[in-house]
Design a protein around this nucleic acid. Structure first.
Lengths: 226, 226
DNA sequence: AGTTCACAAATGATATCACATATGCTAGAT
DNA sequence: ATCTAGCATATGTGATATCATTTGTGAACT
């Protein structure tokens, strides 16, 4: 198992950096569904003792990114069509909610930064750098929802991202087939117009087209439907 | 700090039981907002070494039930009016979503069990057993949302309950002032009629009246508004 | 060849220890 | 009396050791 390192500032705790590394790896789909993990294996891979690894894994298990089996072993959960569709539906509900509640706090400056992120995404797409595309996409959404100063939904949203993550590589490969219209441009237009209804619509379409269609295709080809 | 014990079956791990105990205590509001916690303090209180306590605490921190401060100390987060209103709004969005997606899987047998829970709540209310009332209420909601076999929203919902928990005792004391109409009865009626719109309406009203109004009152009386 | 049992290796869970940092208290200076 | 410096204590973090349980392997048996 090879978990890429991540830049960390000096004061971060080992537990924290393990958490960040695993989280990142899961979210971009580095680790495939069904992968079995061991505390000592991860600890060895990262050159640490099992202690901080256990703490990081526990956190991820509470976010439903890692599954603790009855035999006390750990695994990345398998994806099924039913679970996938529930996750996408939840993602839409949560992100439409978060977008709606961010709009009143939105400044032109943030819109500008969102625009820049979208530009970077265009570059990543043309370079076929799919992991980077994924990260930038999530960063775009996170930034929008975080402008609400009392925001409490981002952690829930990130948990859904984590659960969809292992499946991400398979989905994103097909994204060009289904993602004909650039919904981020629509989101940006709605933001500039401060148009709530348009924003909610564009957000839903973005998520649905970015994951649902291609994801379902992959799943009906490969996986059990239960 | 006195964290009540909880019944556990033989095979549960120490870490797991600490997690369950803390979680329960936070959810019914045993621990007040702003309370400072220490690993060793909790460990001593439960007769365990710090190791399993750390893991349980880490999990709860990832569910935003416990806050890790920059000095690496831990505390139960303070509540503010802004955060409170965001939490209630998120609770409504999530639970309306979950209720809607459970309805298609609902059996008469489950409706019967929900009815029984509601009866128990009436008794708890007449006995003024407020902690029990809280637990039964959450159990009622959890049972409904869990009939969806592919359900993925309950963990997110429980995280919101956890974040509202420390505030629960103050709110529930006032519940009689605002909770004039029994919205659980309305939910049950909607379930029996398989009426989605009525279900969603009743769910929203139940949550809003059960927490929002009395909660806001408590907060505007006591706390900073930021 | 396939099955079963026994033993070895791997793994998870927890306590303990060592270390670094943060906190709190006391004594001295102003 | 108040502030500050310094030291003792408390606390968080992580490595290690130990034990119980699970997994895996190989030999004996059918």
């Amino acid at each position: 198992m090879n978990i890429p390192e991540l830049p960390v500032d000096a004061d971060t705790t080992d537990q924290e950096s393990v958490y960040a590394r695993l989280r990142h790896a899961i979210m971009v789909g580095t680790i495939e569904p069904g992968t079995n993990l061991t505390m000592r294996g991860l600890a060895d891979a990262m050159g640490l003792s099992p202690t901080p690894v256990r703490e990081a894994v526990r956190r991820l298990s509470s976010e439903n990114a890692i599954e603790i089996l009855p035999n006390r072993r750990m695994a990345i959960p398998e994806m099924t069509l039913g679970r996938f569709e529930e996750l996408v539906a939840l993602r839409i509900t949560l992100e439409v909610h978060a977008a709606e509640r961010s709009l009143p706090y939105l400044s032109d400056h943030v819109i500008e930064k969102l625009q820049q992120l979208d530009d970077e995404m265009d570059i990543a797409l043309s370079e076929e750098n799919l992991d980077k595309l994924t990260i930038l996409n999530l960063k775009f959404h996170r930034m929008l929802y975080s402008v609400n100063p009392n925001q409490v939904s981002v952690p829930a949203i990130e948990s859904v991202w984590l659960q969809l993550g292992p499946f991400q590589r398979q989905v994103v490969k097909r994204v060009k087939e289904f993602y004909k219209i650039d919904r981020h441009k629509e989101i940006l237009t709605a933001l500039r117009a401060r148009d709530v209804a348009a924003l909610m619509n564009a957000t839903e379409s973005d998520i649905r087209e970015g994951s649902s269609r291609s994801g379902r295709r992959v799943l009906t080809e490969n996986l059990p439907t239960t």
